[in-house]
Every structure is written in structure tokens, then in C-alpha cells.
């Protein structure tokens, strides 16, 4: 599979557009889901996905085949997601102010839909904490892989993950989910 990726990368670099289309086909679901889990907005997730693959195409010649292609792709996807999510959240704060819990009835979750509720609760986490939860729980990556993607030491991944989990627990307790 890794070899397949390398072949596709090499062919794309030689100008084979079809090979790049294969890369998009293969990884669009992964990137879209990552973006969706970070943003919880399908429109934003589609925009992020497009933006990720454009960046991959533009920067493909800088990819070092010593590393796994999917780790490199993840790294771009996380960065693009974080950038857009932070931009959107800043814009929302500027335009609307920070809404109180009472002003967000759509975000208060009943216990009958805890899976949805925990996803919504994730949005209350700061983006760096949200990212480690998403990469660990939804993408099942190792601490080492998460460290490479986020460009932080493995030790930091572990402590950030623990903090993120306890923060998520506090949010879920407030929402009556756990």
C-alpha cells in the first residue's frame, strides 16, 4: 500500500493527473472525516478537503519518500483543519460574541443521543486538544504517529491526550452526558 502511494506520487510528479486523481479517490474519505470531526460542518469539511489536496498537489515535490505518505497527508490535513477552524471560530467570536449555554439550545444534548453529544462536546475543546482526541479516537493513530503529525514529542502527545480527555469529561458532565 505504501509502495502504491509512492508510485502514485512519482507519476503525479511526472505530470500524470490520473495518478493524482487516484490519490484523491483513496484519501478523500479520510481527509473529509478528519475535517468534519474537527469542524462539525460539512461545508467547511468539503472546503478543507479541497484545500488539503490542492496543497498536497502544490507541495508534492517536497514530500520525502523516507516517510509514510499518509502521515505527510495527515499533517497537511490537520494543519488546514486547524487553520480553518480557528479562523471560523475567531470570526464567530467577533461577529456574535461568545454565546452562553442558554443561547445555544441546539448544542444541549439529551442523554438519548450521547454519541452525537460527545461529538458536539468536542467542539468546546481548544483546537490542539481536539486534534489529539480526533487523531487517537477516530483515526486510531499511535502516540508516535500523532507526535509526527502534530510535530510535538511523544511525551507531549500523552500529556495533552490525558488533559484533553479530562477536559472532555468535564464538558460532558456539564452537558449531562457522563
Amino acid at each position: 500500500m505504501v509502495d502504491d502511494d509512492l508510485k502514485l506520487v512519482e507519476r503525479t510528479l511526472k505530470g500524470d493527473r490520473k495518478s493524482f486523481e487516484c490519490i484523491v479517490e483513496k484519501y478523500q474519505k479520510l481527509v473529509f472525516n478528519l475535517a468534519l470531526q474537527m469542524s462539525r460542518n460539512a461545508d467547511d469539511a468539503a472546503d478543507i478537503t479541497q484545500s488539503v489536496f490542492l496543497k498536497v498537489y502544490e507541495k508534492l515535490s517536497t514530500f520525502d519518500p523516507k516517510y509514510k505518505f499518509f502521515s505527510w497527508l495527515y499533517r497537511i490535513a490537520v494543519n488546514e483543519s486547524v487553520n480553518l477552524v480557528q479562523k471560523v471560530e475567531r470570526r464567530e467570536e467577533l461577529s456574535e460574541g461568545i454565546a452562553t449555554e442558554e443561547e445555544m439550545p441546539d448544542r444541549s444534548i439529551g442523554s438519548q443521543d450521547t454519541t452525537h453529544g460527545v461529538q458536539e462536546a468536542l467542539l468546546e475543546l481548544d483546537v490542539p486538544y481536539r486534534a489529539v482526541i480526533v487523531l487517537k479516537h477516530f483515526h486510531d493513530l499511535s502516540y508516535q504517529e500523532i507526535g509526527q503529525i502534530l510535530d510535538i514529542p511523544e511525551k507531549t502527545v500523552k500529556s495533552r491526550l490525558f488533559t484533553a480527555r479530562t477536559m472532555l469529561r468535564t464538558i460532558c458532565q456539564r452537558r449531562g452526558i457522563v
Binding site: Q28, A42, A46, L54, T115, I133, F138, R169
Partner: peptide, 23 residues
């Protein structure tokens, strides 16, 4: 318990036409 809830979150199929939109 939280970990169990997160595990239940299912992957979503990307919208039809996303590949064309990207390409």
C-alpha cells in the same frame, strides 16, 4: 465510558462529487 462513546462515532461518506470538486 467516553472512549466507548467516541468509538461509536461512525465514518461519514464524503459528498458525491467531492472528487470532481477537488480535481
Amino acid at each position: 465510558r467516553l472512549s466507548g462513546m467516541l468509538r461509536k462515532v461512525e465514518e461519514v461518506e464524503p459528498p458525491a462529487g467531492l472528487k470532481s470538486y477537488i480535481m
